[in-house]
Design a binder for these strands. Structure first.
Lengths: 138, 138
DNA sequence: TATAATCCTATCGGTTTACTAGGTTTTAAG
DNA sequence: CTTAAAACCTAGTAAACCGATAGGATTATA
């Protein structure tokens, strides 16, 4: 299950991407428009800034803005930062690999190969969709 | 992330499927062979029985056995029972649908369409794999 | 009758989630 | 220079969930 954090983060990025001008967008505006708790959203925006998706400007008239073009932001990257691994099991994760305690050998594990297939299917979808693709969906 | 419950459940089903005869398999045997806490596994086996995947026989020489052929058990069904929804967001779940609090309209939600794609990709994989497919993977 | 198995209920410590509170700092506008 | 508006930061917290564990009750076999 996708956490609310990730969901809100994606919505916020999409909201910013939808604006034509590149003027900073305030968290308060996004929180109102997208029905997200403002304080919670603030912490998410901060994380998106620290991980290089957003820039920010402080003070009056400040806000957040995209650093890259929406078309260059793959959803895999966004989800990995906000949610963590895309794989359903750590032992098939490309970016967050962890060995299972119980499995003596991954090659003979019945769950392993199945989850690799699921992972690859998800990666295909999330890797082909960019922020631009999802921002202008309607 | 797949819960351990689901992971253990799949492993247990695969273990039983691998046996040629249809004699009941004890939870204790599975728990030893697959390195799963016995008490925890017991509760999982019970759930698998109540949901119609397994039959059971009590008392000495008892255990659990498959009710259907492994080739007839789709992994979608197993995961839905043990884990719940396959979708990453309730609002795109086929079997566990729930409306989002924040979304006024799913059709204009940027997350929605993306998650439908992910869901469908996962469903493809999990629907095409049966217990037989994953039990005899090596 | 002893033993081995499932079945059942309850509990529990730890972690995560989704916030909330309460500020500090920076900047622009008046 | 003052005020307001914005990001930034730290901490805490209630609730839910997870992965077990405990302790037995029930049932069947030998």
């Amino acid at each position: 299950m996708l956490s609310k954090k990730t969901k809100y983060g994606i919505k916020a990025l999409a909201y910013i991407a939808r604006k034509k001008d590149r003027k900073p967008v305030q968290a308060s505006e996004i929180s109102e428009s997208e029905n997200i708790s403002q304080k919670f959203l603030e912490s998410i925006m901060l994380e998106l800034r620290k991980s290089g998706f957003l820039g920010s400007k402080k003070g009056k008239g400040g806000g957040y803005y995209l650093i890259k073009e929406p078309g260059e932001i793959r959803m895999t990257a966004v989800i990995r930062v906000l949610e963590g691994p895309i794989a359903m099991v750590p032992c098939v994760s490309l970016n967050y690999y962890e060995k299972c305690d119980d499995c003596p050998d991954e090659k003979t594990c019945s769950v392993h190969k199945l989850m690799i297939q699921v992972r690859d299917a998800s990666l295909d979808v999330l890797g082909e969709n960019t922020l631009e693709d999802i921002a202008f969906t309607q």
